[in-house]
Design a protein around this nucleic acid. Structure first.
Lengths: 141, 141
DNA sequence: TGATAATATTAGACGATTCTAACTTTGTCA
DNA sequence: TGACAAAGTTAGAATCGTCTAATATTATCA
């Protein structure tokens, strides 16, 4: 099982892989605001866990195992962020911060239900019902 | 600033203080499933931070600073747990587990909004609206 | 091509969090 | 009261996650 931090690095690698043509240790360090040796040691542990591969002095890629795990973590992140921002009405920045800190805490079943719940609120509630407006008024106070 | 683990121990001390007439290192160790020296070192750090006091070979009590902080953490825990159980419909055990892992991630503003949101769902939605029933049907699948 | 910049790696340190093993203090009850 | 049990403490080790400083490799460009 991965530690929280290892999951964080895995998720960062996943996100950078989607933005950049290749991901190196320095990309991760820049993104996370830590030093190169810190990333090097985290990456070493992820390699030892079989989550990622890296060519010597070279680029990092997700193994299938790591890809799957990163997708799950990122899914939790997205769902939480959406809930915090679109349902609770937090600012984009605050929703992101809170989602980052909570993302490792939700299990699959909770994510599944939260997703369904957001859909319900957005499809059903917002329209025909004054509750959300009232809530948003109070929340803004 | 406290680490996550330090916050966990502080919360445990807070909860045990409400259940027991006095709280010792062995009570905390039993509750958390760790050894006595582990608790001893955590308690030492909390003492160094001014969060708690302890008589030599004796009992532990929360200082005002620690009491305030523990109450905040426990509030996050309760609100999250309530949301997971009463709104999303997770089992009591699963709600508790998820709340434990997420409680350090929510800031005050998010807790405030989540509380208001739960009230809204329970006071307004449940009654006159079929959305919640529909959601609960899907969620149970 | 060769100097310099960028990147990756290694070495060594430190605090946090955990453990086991040994020891000390306190509490209990025969 | 004195022995044993329970609780607290100390010592020492391991791992994680971070750092700085030094070193090695790769890339770039004059």
């Amino acid at each position: 099982m991965l530690t929280r931090k290892e999951e964080d690095y895995l998720e960062t690698i996943y996100r950078l892989s989607q933005e950049l043509e290749s991901v190196g240790i320095s990309d991760i360090a820049r993104e996370r605001g830590v030093t190169l040796p810190t990333v090097f040691s985290a990456v070493s542990r992820l390699k030892a866990n079989g989550m990622i591969s890296q060519t010597p002095y070279g680029k990092i890629s997700l193994n299938p195992k790591g890809q799957k795990m990163a997708e799950e973590i990122y899914e939790s992140h997205r769902v939480l962020r959406k809930f915090l921002q679109e349902v609770l009405g937090l600012s984009s920045e605050m929703a992101e911060e809170n989602a980052c800190r909570m993302e490792h805490g939700l299990n699959r079943e909770a994510v599944r239900r939260l997703k369904l719940f957001i859909d319900m609120v957005q499809n059903c509630l917002s329209k025909e019902n004054s509750c959300m407006e009232e809530f948003q008024g109070k929340a803004r106070t």
